[in-house]
Design a protein around this nucleic acid. Structure first.
Length: 254
DNA sequence: TTAATTTGACCTGG
DNA sequence: CCAGGTCAAATTAA
C-alpha cells in the first residue's frame, strides 16, 4: 500500500466534496478495521505503525473537511442537508480559535466531573464502532432523549498514561440499507481528544506494561477485547467496493 | 483473582 | 430543572 495519496474530486460544490470526504473517512475506518486484524500475527511495530498511519490519514481528511466546511458555510450551504452527515465534525469549544488547538482534560483530581464539550471532537458513522485499533474501556451508558438506543461512553484503557482520548458510540435509530441488501446497524462514533498513549515518549515509559507487551508481541488475544469482538464479516464491503469504484473519485497515487 | 462491564447516583451546563 | 457526562460500587467474565 502506498503511504501517501491524494484524492481529486471532479466537479461539484464544496458540499459534494464534503460528502465524499465524509464517505471516504467512513470507509477508511472500515478498511482499517478490515486490515488491522491481519497484524495480529505480525510484529507489534507494524501494527502500531499501521494504526498511526490510519489515524494520520483520518486526521488529514478531518482537516480538509474543516476547511471545506468553512468554505461551505461562507457560501451559505448548510451541512444539515447532507445525507451522510449525522453529527458535527470538529466541535470546537468557545475558547478554541484563540491559539488553542485543542484542550485535554488535565486531571479530575479535585474536580470530580467535567464535560468534554470543550474538547475537539470528530465523528463518523460506521458499522464497526468497536474496532478502531485502540483499546477502549467502557465507563458508562446512558439513554438519550428521543433515541432508540442507549449511548455508550468509552475512554482509552491506558489512562495510566494520561491518555485523554474518549469516545461515545450511539447506534442509529434507523438502520441503513446498502445496495438494496438487508439493513445494517450503523453507529455514530464521536471521538474526543487525541491518543497520547501511542506517543513514543509515553510508550517508552510503558515498556513494563503487560498489555503493551502483548500488543508489541502481536499477541492481541485476550489483551485487546476489540480484536475479539471484531468479525471481518461486519465490514461494509459493498460500500467499500462502491467507493473504490466510484467514478467521481480519482485516486491519484503519488 | 483480576479485569472489564453494568448501572444507579451524582454533578454540571444550559 | 433537565439532559447528558462521569464516577464508582456491584456484578460478571476470563
Amino acid at each position: 500500500m502506498k503511504s501517501s495519496s491524494t484524492m481529486v474530486v471532479n466537479g461539484g460544490s464544496e458540499m459534494d466534496a464534503l460528502l465524499l470526504l465524509r464517505r471516504q473517512q467512513e470507509l477508511l475506518t472500515q478498511l482499517r478495521a478490515l486490515i488491522l486484524p491481519t497484524f495480529r500475527d505480525a510484529d507489534g511495530r507494524s501494527a502500531d505503525l499501521a494504526i498511526c498511519l490510519f489515524d494520520d490519514i483520518i486526521d488529514c481528511i478531518d482537516g480538509v473537511m474543516s476547511r471545506l466546511q468553512g468554505l461551505s458555510a461562507a457560501g451559505g450551504h448548510g451541512l444539515a442537508t447532507a445525507p451522510f452527515v449525522l453529527a458535527d465534525v470538529d466541535v470546537v469549544s468557545p475558547n478554541a480559535g484563540e491559539g488553542q488547538d485543542e484542550k485535554h482534560v488535565i486531571s479530575n483530581v479535585g474536580q470530580k466531573r467535567r464535560r468534554n464539550n470543550d474538547k475537539r471532537s470528530r465523528s463518523l458513522v460506521t458499522v464497526v464502532p468497536h474496532y478502531d485499533g485502540h483499546h477502549w474501556r467502557k465507563y458508562g451508558q446512558k439513554n438519550i432523549n428521543g433515541r432508540e438506543h442507549a449511548r455508550s461512553y468509552y475512554r482509552c484503557a491506558y489512562t495510566e498514561r494520561n491518555c485523554p482520548a474518549t469516545k461515545t458510540i450511539q447506534q442509529q435509530d434507523h438502520n441503513v440499507t446498502i445496495n438494496c441488501e438487508e439493513e445494517t446497524a450503523k453507529y455514530i462514533v464521536v471521538y474526543y481528544g487525541h491518543h497520547t498513549c501511542c506517543d513514543d515518549s509515553t510508550r517508552n515509559g510503558a515498556k513494563n506494561d503487560p498489555g503493551m507487551d502483548l500488543i508489541q508481541n502481536g499477541k492481541m488475544a485476550g489483551a485487546v477485547t476489540e480484536f475479539q469482538k471484531f468479525d471481518p464479516g461486519d465490514v461494509d464491503m459493498p460500500a467499500l467496493i462502491e467507493v473504490l469504484d466510484n467514478p467521481e473519485l480519482n485516486w491519484d497515487i503519488i
